[in-house]
């Protein structure tokens, strides 16, 4: 126990590592003396699974609830509703207490500077987690040095440094080492490379792929950068305004997006061919206010294919291909949308 080994696999490969069921987070707005203000529907009922050993990418615009979802999964904030099931056990029960769960799931934040305590040296930052879990300092520090080596930083040179003495890429490597210090089975990577410049970004991404194989990890990779997600993810989840718009294998999503929002997102990527450069944006305007989201389909206010049915009924997440699901009336047979097939499913 004191060596903090990797937690054993319980359910076998068929058991998804993480199941998220109907996860909801509404932030109350501070309004008026009696708190009768509205609520921000940051995450409004999302369901998905992460299989063992895969990388699930979550993409979406700013403010769509990606980061709230990651903090909910990390149990840093309390969900309004919904359940998180890790390797077959509900988080927070006697079978899987929160502290045990936290050893298994760790997180890397976007801001590499803000996520390191400026008063702790690099080795102390990395050793903090294992020491919290009962590992002595004499063991935690050598372990921190091993992890520094694993993320490509020479311990002799970096272990005693402070965060402000490191570059952005080096700091993010330290953050990854710190997240790995508890030997977790899953890493939540919340925009881990967004703040890095392009050359460093590629190095860190490739290192993450190496570490995944080395430590047998499962990744939840959150990003707004579609190219990055295409590079690292096995499956992709597209979020829009707190809900799942589409989820499916990365090849299938990028080759044949089903949801108009996913299509627009993919079309918004700059083309490498100057002759095919877009002159108009595929979608215009900002996402609606999550305090008062549109009725029915949340994307309908910006969707070029919206019809009456989109305002009156919320589209369910329907299967459109192998492991591929989209929440749009167009792909749901019998939904009443003019582009959907007639017969009911």
């Amino acid at each position: 126990m004191l060596q903090l080994p990797t937690m054993p696999d319980r359910g076998g490969p068929a058991q998804p590592l993480l199941i998220v069921q109907n996860l909801v987070k509404h932030f109350p707005l501070k309004g008026g003396l009696f708190g009768q203000g509205g609520k921000v529907q940051a995450v409004d009922g999302i369901d998905f699974e992460i299989r063992k050993g895969e990388t699930l990418g979550i993409v979406g615009e700013s403010g769509c609830g990606k980061s709230t979802a990651s903090r909910l999964i990390m149990s840093l904030i309390e969900p309004t509703d919904g359940e998180i099931i890790f390797d077959g056990e509900k988080v927070g029960t006697a079978a899987l207490p929160l502290k045990e769960y936290r050893r298994q799931v760790q997180m890397v934040f976007q801001d590499s500077y803000a996520s390191l305590n400026p008063r702790l040296s690099i080795e102390e930052s990395i050793a903090f987690g294992p020491m919290v879990h009962g590992l002595g300092r004499s063991r935690a520090i050598p372990r921190a040095h091993d992890l520094l080596t694993a993320v490509g930083l020479a311990p002799a040179q970096f272990a005693h440094r402070y965060p402000h003495e490191l570059s952005g890429g080096q700091r993010q490597r330290v953050n990854i080492a710190r997240a790995l210090a508890l030997r977790p089975r899953m890493l939540i990577l919340d925009e881990p490379v967004s703040a890095l410049d392009k050359s460093v970004e590629a190095q860190v991404l490739n290192m993450l792929l190496d570490l995944k194989a080395q430590f047998e990890l499962t990744y939840l990779f959150i990003s707004h950068d579609l190219n990055v997600v295409q590079h690292v993810a096995d499956r992709v989840l597209v979020m829009y305004l707190g809900r799942v718009a589409e989820i499916g294998p990365v090849d299938s999503i990028f080759a044949a997006p089903q949801h108009p929002y996913t299509q627009a997102l993919l079309a918004s990527r700059p083309s490498m061919d100057p002759d095919r450069r877009r002159t108009e944006p595929p979608i215009t305007g900002d996402p609606p206010n999550p305090v008062n989201p549109p009725s029915g389909c949340r994307f309908r206010t910006r969707c070029s294919l919206a019809e009456d049915i989109c305002a009156s009924a919320t589209p369910p997440l329907g299967t459109t291909g192998p492991m591929h699901q989209a929440a749009c009336h167009i792909v749901a047979p019998g939904s009443g949308h003019s582009m959907a097939s007639r017969e009911a499913a």
Partner: peptide
């Protein structure tokens, strides 16, 4: 509200330890 306090919470440290160290 800085991320290093969040990540300390994510390791499972109790409030007393977080206040003392971070």
């Amino acid at each position: 509200n800085l991320d290093y306090v969040e990540s300390a919470r994510a390791t499972g440290a109790n409030s007393f330890t977080i206040v003392r160290v971070h």
